[in-house]
Every structure is written in C-alpha cells, then in structure tokens.
C-alpha cells in the first residue's frame, strides 16, 4: 500500500544568529493508511520537532534545511504556505499534549469544531454545528447537546482532550499527529482515550503518528516504532520486535529503566530489583557528540563508535538500527 507519509532524510536546523545548529539529522520514516507509528525518546531528542516540521508549525528560527516530507506523494517541505494551509486541519491534523492551551478559551467547543468544517469543507454555520454535535457524540462526550455551548474551562481534562480529538478528526484526516496526547491525563482516562482513538482509526483508516516518551503507550497503540536520540532516528521496526528484542543499546537502556508492574504471584516474589540506568543525560542541541551520538553514555562503546559514524544495519524485516554493535547484539 502506498504510504500516506514518507519522510526522507529530513534535516532541521535552528539559527542561533551566529550559526545554524542541527536539530534533526537524516530522519527517514514511512507510514501507511490505518497504521500507527510510535515515536519514542527522551525530551530533547527531536520527536516533537519532527511533528512540527510535518505540520509546518516549526517555531521561529527553526527551519527545514534538507530532505523531503512526502504527504500522499506531495512534498510538504517545499510546498507554499497557502497550499499547506489547505491541508492542515483537513487531511492532516494534530492533537496536542495540553488541551487547555491548545483550545481557544473564548470560543465554545461547538464553534471550535465547526470552524474547521466551515473553513475546509465549506459547510454553513448550521451544518457545521450539526456536524460538531455528531463529532462530540463520536468522541463519546456525555450530553453532547449541552456541551456544544460550553467553553473549554467548563470541561474536565479528559473531556477537553476528547474535544481536541473531535476537532482533529472533524474533516476525516488521512494523518493525525498525536503529540503526547494522554500525558496530562489520568491512567483510567488515558485508557479511554486510547480506546477511542483506535476505534475511530478503525472506522476511517486514518494513519497516526504517536509521539510519546512512554514505552507502555507504544506497546498499547503502535504497529511500528521509531526510537529517537539526539536528533537521529536510531532504531526502527515493528513494535513486537523493538520491545521484545531491542537492538540499539539506547533502546535496551530505555527498556530496563522503565519500571514494570508485576501482578499476581509474580508480585509476591522478592522485592523488585533496582532499575537499570542509562548514565548521564541527553546532550543539548549544538553539543551532539561526533560519530555515534550515544557513545558517551553507551556501555558497549569502543574507539570505533567514538570516531566513525555508525551504519544503519538491517536486522530483519523492516527492523534496522543505527549502531556499530547492533548486529552482534541481535544475534547474541
């Protein structure tokens, strides 16, 4: 199937006034209709920048400096703003982490959902309101007729996130980028939102790019995974492969430092061992190490890792890692 989104060797830089520092370096990934890709990594690894570059919402001073972002075959990176605006909120939409700041506080939720429909689909005010009501129903908001005229502050966090999803889905987009959509929510509400996203995805065949720091969320939602570190995509593959046989030492590190809940008889075994650790912190933009960027924190790094760029090694069907050691690890 033809991918909805194909990012090829994307480069993003930030202009500090003195020099242009590399923020994203050679990101490539592809996403088919109806599938979900999870983008994981710590803060400062470039996950959100990839999302913003795709949406054309990079902050001031940040710019795409190379590569292509192909959306249904058309390059978003080189597309004029006017054309891009026609896609955004229509075929291509985004769910943000904090619904309180992403929603307009002085417009009712009905108005905000209706707005995208009037703008992109030329609906009249009355039609848009009717569709907004349908959308509130679709995202399972109780008493939707009453909620239509509510302002964001009158809703709970979980309901606001549902409204945001309603806005994002109103025009039946081909691609949704969800940037930490449940991080601000409680776990029981998170479970509801994930279930809702999957149901709606099943109905519309929308592709989802899920940005998260939570490997548990990836296990729950994603078909494929891309692990980011210091502006590079260091491992990609099917979700089961990545979570059960991580090959890059950084991915392995993320796995061992995530506490996992043990239920039943396993919980009565001796007290849980100390968590694994990845020493040090993610290097800031402008101070990415040469050669392998993870080498200074990597327990396996040797001289070659510190002097030569690691190759992208194929480790099986659709599974690849940017690491000198990956092969030995995978077959160890």
């Amino acid at each position: 199937m033809a991918p909805v989104l194909e990012i090829r060797d994307l480069q993003v830089g930030v202009d500090t006034g003195r020099e242009v520092l590399s923020v994203l370096d050679g990101i490539s990934l592809s996403l088919e209709p109806g599938r979900t890709i999870g983008i994981v990594g710590e803060s400062g690894c470039g996950k959100s920048m990839t999302a913003l570059a795709t949406m054309g919402l990079l902050p001031d001073r940040f710019a795409i400096t190379g590569g292509q972002i192909l959306f249904e075959g058309e390059d978003l990176a080189s597309m004029p703003d006017r054309q891009r605006r026609r896609l955004r909120g229509n075929a291509l939409s985004m769910i943000f982490q904090e619904p309180m700041t992403a929603l307009n506080p002085v417009l009712t939720v009905g108005r905000q959902i209706g707005e995208v429909l009037e703008l992109h689909q030329g609906l009249s005010g009355h039609e848009a309101r009717q569709r907004a009501l349908d959308m509130l129903r679709a995202v399972q908001i109780p008493a939707p007729e009453r909620r239509l005229d509510n302002y964001p502050h009158e809703l709970s966090g979980g309901m606001r996130q549902r409204v945001m999803i309603a806005i994002a889905l109103a025009c039946r987009p081909k691609l949704i980028i969800a940037d930490e959509p449940t991080t601000a929510l409680d776990v029981t509400v998170q479970a509801q939102i994930f279930r809702l996203l999957r149901e709606l995805q099943g109905e519309t065949d929308t592709a989802i790019m899920l940005i998260t720091h939570d490997l548990g969320a990836v296990a729950e939602m994603a078909d494929d995974v891309a692990v980011f570190y210091a502006g590079k995509c260091i491992e990609t593959g099917p979700v089961a492969q990545i979570l059960q046989h991580p090959s890059h030492p950084y991915t392995q590190g993320l796995m061992v430092c995530t506490p996992t809940m043990r239920l039943g008889a396993a919980a009565l075994a001796e007290s849980p061992p100390a968590l694994g650790e990845i020493a040090g912190i993610v290097p800031p933009v402008g101070r990415f190490p040469k050669a392998c960027r993870f080498a200074p924190r990597c327990p396996l790094a040797d001289d070659r890792c510190r002097t030569e760029d690691p190759p992208l090694r194929a480790l099986g069907a659709a599974h690849a890692a940017l690491c000198w050691k990956a092969e030995e690890e995978a077959f160890a």
């Binding site: 999957r198 548990g216 296990a219």
Partner: peptide
C-alpha cells in the same frame, strides 16, 4: 483493578479493546 488494568507496560501489549476499563471521571 481499574487502575491496574489501565497501567501500560512495554512488556505486555494488551490492546485497549481487551482491557477492563471504567467509564466516566
């Protein structure tokens, strides 16, 4: 139980549809 069912772990990819979930807030 509902908190335990909603907790996500990387080792266990139970899909959202099969979980015990509670409704409302």
């Amino acid at each position: 139980w509902s908190l335990m069912a909603a907790a996500l772990t990387p080792e266990n990819s139970r899909r959202a549809g099969e979980r015990f979930t509670i409704t409302g807030e």
